[in-house]
């Protein structure tokens, strides 16, 4: 088993969920997202974000609008669409499921007891 590979696969799976979470909290532009993801140690290089944002936008989960900035070039502010909110809800569900499963596996309690 390749531990590093496993870890990075887990992060990859999480990344879109994290981005949706961040944008759900408040519409933000790439640099905000990058800074917060870096703080959370989700990404190392910032270039990874751009293809992801574009794909989420193409999947109609995100929308953006240009805003002039007093600090440098104009910025794209991303926000969730209705589809995006729905996707985030589903991801929330499956995240809860996952943490529940992990908790069960850790403590060894049978599933019936864990599900309240």
């Amino acid at each position: 088993m390749n531990l590093e590979n496993n870890k990075s696969q887990m992060r990859k799976g999480m990344l879109e969920y994290c981005i949706l979470l961040l944008i759900h909290r408040q519409p933000s532009y790439a640099n905000d997202i990058i800074t917060q993801l870096k703080e959370a140690e989700m990404i190392v290089v910032e270039g990874t974000l751009y293809p992801l944002l574009t794909r989420l936008k193409n999947d109609k989960l995100l929308k953006y609008e240009w805003k002039e900035s007093t600090q440098g070039p104009p910025r794209k502010y991303y926000a969730l669409t209705l589809d995006g909110e729905e996707a985030l809800r589903q991801l929330d569900e499956s995240w809860k499921q996952l943490t529940r499963t992990v908790a069960i596996l850790k403590t060894g309690r049978p599933a019936s007891e864990a599900e309240i």
């Binding site: 990859k12 290089v45 990874t48 293809p51």
Partner: peptide, 9 residues
């Protein structure tokens, strides 16, 4: 800094 945009592509 911008690095590898394809890592998670």
């Amino acid at each position: 800094k911008i690095g590898n945009p394809d890592e998670i592509e």
